[in-house]
Structure formats: structure tokens, C-alpha cells
């Protein structure tokens, strides 16, 4: 840290960082306390949307004003994290839906698609399975 820091800047950066951390912490506590997987999937997005955004904003403010030039690194990280987290969450949610439907235990909406037959009659008899190219 540097010595001659203006008061308003330190308050602004502090507020952003503390608020962002509080949101992230709430999200991770949600990960522990929420009862089902589909509820828990909402929890980490707090850390990647507003929580992470505020912390990175505080960092960008601090470095831009103390170094006298605009610092973009945080923006790159923010864009990357906010774009990639939904992708991973969607993949994970789809995998979970798939697994839940196979197991058939918990209350999950049924699949849109009709399940493909495992084997046709002819394949059952001959034992030869024709693989479809797709």
C-alpha cells in the first residue's frame, strides 16, 4: 500500500471490497445451508455477478488512481468469469437433470425428448447393434 492515499478513494475501495466479499460469503454459506442441488446452483452466482464485480471494481479503482493510468486487467477477469460461470453451471445442471431422471428419485420435470429405445427387436435377436452416426 502507498502512503499518501486520498481518504475518499480509500473509503470507496473499502466499501466496494467489503460489500463484494459479504455477497460472496453469503453465496458460499447458501451453498452449505440450502437443502437441494437445484437451489444450491443459484448460490455461487452471487460471487460471480455482483460480489466479484464489486471486488474487481474496487481493485480497478485503486490501481487506476494510484498508478495514474487506467487499469483494465480487472475488466478482463470480470468478463471471463461472468461469461464462463453460466456455461459451467448450465452443463452441471444438465448433467444433474440427466442423472436425476435416470435414477428417477427426486421430483424433476420429465425430459422433453422421448427416450430412445435401448435396442430394437432385430438387434435383440441377432446381438448386432447398428450404431447410428450422429
Amino acid at each position: 500500500m502507498i502512503a499518501n492515499l486520498p481518504l475518499w478513494l480509500s473509503i470507496l475501495v473499502s466499501a466496494a471490497v467489503v460489500l463484494g466479499s459479504a455477497l460472496t460469503l453469503a453465496g458460499c454459506f447458501g451453498l452449505v445451508r440450502l437443502p437441494t442441488f437445484y437451489l444450491r446452483i443459484h448460490a455461487p452466482t452471487m460471487g460471480t455477478s455482483l460480489g466479484g464485480g464489486l471486488i474487481l471494481l474496487g481493485s480497478a479503482l485503486y490501481f487506476s488512481l494510484t498508478q495514474g493510468r487506467v487499469v483494465f486487467h480487472e475488466l478482463a477477469i470480470f468478463v471471463f468469469v461472468t461469461v464462463t460461470t453460466p456455461v459451467t453451471l448450465m452443463l452441471l445442471a444438465r448433467a444433474t437433470l440427466f442423472r436425476d431422471r435416470v435414477e428417477g428419485g427426486s421430483a424433476v420435470p420429465p425430459s422433453f425428448r422421448k427416450p430412445e429405445p435401448l435396442a430394437t427387436e432385430a438387434e435383440m435377436q441377432t446381438g448386432i447393434v447398428e450404431t447410428k452416426a450422429d
Partner: peptide, 26 residues
């Protein structure tokens, strides 16, 4: 899937922790 979700969250929090460490050490 719960473990993987938590692992993903852990990555993100570690990243944010490093950013605050960057401010601290300038």
C-alpha cells in the same frame, strides 16, 4: 454434482482472494 459445484465456487473465491491480496501488497 454438489462437490463439483462447490469446487467451482471455491475457484472463484480463491481468485477474488488473490485480487484483494493484490490491493494489499500494491
Amino acid at each position: 454434482q454438489d462437490r463439483i459445484l462447490a469446487l467451482d465456487a471455491l475457484y472463484v473465491v480463491a481468485l477474488l482472494l488473490l485480487v484483494t491480496l493484490g490491493i494489499r501488497t500494491n
